[in-house]
């Protein structure tokens, strides 16, 4: 475990906690894309299939349970909580996320490390996570005033995979392991998708103005 990996995991944890905090305390999911949350729940469900078969460490198992639990509870909150669901803007959150799942599944069926169920599912989760933020970014462009917590959530979510890239670079030079090129490419694509968000997020922070993405 190197500092980049730990920072990445803590940033990821912070992102889900910020979102849970927002939804649980102010009972509002305004500006939050349910589609992205559903995609993330699917990402974790397909990536952590080995949670019962392969024990890596207590940390690893605990973090997997936290990410699974938080992503599914966020989906539940937005869909079924009698107060939160009223603040969900389904007319704006219209990204057809099935159009993301299908190509990712097809790509995983053709481009993977080895053709086993767990491996294809894991590869699918990598591809899906790379594009899972798209419905949320589209919604942010439509939502005129992005509240701070939602902006922080997206920023932290984008930063975690960026830190993982440093982790892979660090491990590449210090350990006799290798990172499969699929992991590299999916991680870099995912981080690049946040590039314009990061730019506008930094600009709004620097000029101390409310974050707004150009339509």
């Amino acid at each position: 475990m190197n500092i980049f990996r730990l920072a990445g995991d803590m940033t990821h944890l912070a992102s889900v906690l910020v979102l849970l905090l927002k939804i649980h305390t102010i009972k509002s999911c305004a500006g939050v894309s349910l589609k992205t949350q559903e995609l993330y729940a699917l990402v974790f469900a397909t990536r952590y299939l080995d949670i019962v078969t392969d024990f890596i460490s207590v940390y690893n198992t605990v973090m997997k349970l936290i990410f699974l639990g938080s992503s599914f509870s966020i989906v539940w909150y937005i869909r079924h909580h009698r107060v939160v669901r009223r603040s969900y803007d389904k007319d704006q959150d219209t990204f057809r996320h099935y159009l993301l799942m299908i190509p990712c599944m097809l790509l995983a069926l053709f481009v993977h490390e080895k053709f086993t169920f767990k491996e294809v599912m894991w590869t699918f989760s990598l591809y899906l996570e790379a594009v899972a933020i798209l419905p949320q970014l589209v919604l942010l462009q439509r939502t005129r005033n992005i509240d701070n917590l939602t902006g922080q959530y997206v920023f932290l979510l984008g930063a975690y995979r960026g830190l993982y890239i440093f982790n892979w670079i660090y491990r590449y030079f210090t350990e006799p392991h290798f990172v499969h090129w699929i992991t590299w490419i999916a991680g870099v694509v995912q981080t690049l998708l946040y590039a314009d968000f990061f730019y506008y997020y930094f600009e709004s922070w620097k000029n101390n103005v409310r974050l707004q993405l150009p339509a």
Partner: peptide, 10 residues
């Protein structure tokens, strides 16, 4: 042996 490192990552 080259274990693929992703096994221990999240």
């Amino acid at each position: 042996d080259k274990m693929n490192m992703r096994k221990d990552e999240l």
